[in-house]
């Protein structure tokens, strides 16, 4: 499936979100460089990709709501708040580390 246009990235889930992804916190994956429409892959596409290809749990709504990351889940792009990086329009770069942290779980 992979080709040289794929973008290698690492994905991390924490704060309880990993429960939705087979209890695995870290994933190294190859993201297609272009989204469905041929535009450069951005975080919105990544999120769809994670939902369709990686997520083990059927409860998609616990991760995605109204086509974006569910409110209450923080997204860190190379440690920076995604709001500083253009949110889901941020274009994914090679070797990016993108982290999803739930604030919704109990403490």
């Amino acid at each position: 499936m992979s080709n040289e246009d794929d973008v290698p990235i690492t994905i991390e889930f924490s704060g309880g979100l990993e429960i939705l992804f087979g209890d695995q916190k870290k994933y190294s994956l190859l993201l297609p460089a272009k989204d469905e429409s041929g535009a450069p892959a951005n975080v919105a596409f990544l999120v769809r990709h994670l939902c369709d290809k990686v997520m083990k749990d059927p409860r998609k709504e616990l991760f995605v709501l109204d086509d974006t990351v569910r409110p209450g889940i923080l997204v860190l792009i190379n440690e920076a708040d995604w709001e500083l990086e253009g949110e889901d329009k941020y274009e994914v770069q090679k070797d990016d580390h993108i982290m999803f942290v739930s604030t919704l779980h109990g403490g």
Partner: peptide
């Protein structure tokens, strides 16, 4: 803010546990 509590825990590498029950 809960957001900042989580970010503080993250950036300080604090060791905490989460349950799913909130859902």
């Amino acid at each position: 803010y809960e957001k900042e509590i989580v970010l503080y825990a993250h950036h300080k590498h604090l060791d905490y546990f989460s349950t799913e029950c909130i859902y």
